[in-house]
Amino acid sequence: MHVHNYEKLWLLASLALIVGFISTIVYGAVGAGVVMVNDEGGQVNASGLSEHPEFNDPGVRKVGPNEYEAYVVAQQFAFSPDPIEVPANSTVTFYVTSRDVVHGFEVAGTNANAMVVPGEVSKMTVEFNETDEYGVVCNEYCGQAHHDMAGEVIVKEPGNFTLDDAGESTTAQATNGTDETANGTGES
């Protein structure tokens, strides 16, 4: 088969580019420790969340020093709890599921982002380094009032944070950061 020399060069450069792209992703997963949402969250019965030991009472729980778990239920057209309050300098593992249709759980401006599929639990671990307020957006069309579905993550001073606060509403108007203080990490 006749292949022009320039064509061969281009082919090799293309393959190098592709391998390069794949290596950056492998580095992101292995080196930087960015973990995907995967099948670790397991399955739940979407119509029986009220009998579930954790999702019957969505909220934040402390599971270790600076380690928290947040159980979040998405449904048309709200997240529960809202706002989700966590302390700064903590590692929070989110478990998110849906009561009805497919939703999204996106901490706006960060890479903390997951699909929320009824029957499945999306598990993701996020590090919160500084106090901040983030918007949470449902980014998957879920019905006629989809555009009203939003929540908040409030990262508080560790001194001001008590678990009893979780679930109470705050009056602060949030300005979310576009810096990436919230990052998926390998610690799970």
Binding site: G104, E106, A108, Y134, G135, C138, A150, A174, T175, N176
Partner: peptide, 14 residues
């Protein structure tokens, strides 16, 4: 972080 497929990507809280 503006989502796709939404009629009003303006939110009251943020």
């Amino acid at each position: 972080g503006i989502p796709r497929r939404t009629a009003e990507p303006e939110y009251s809280k943020f």
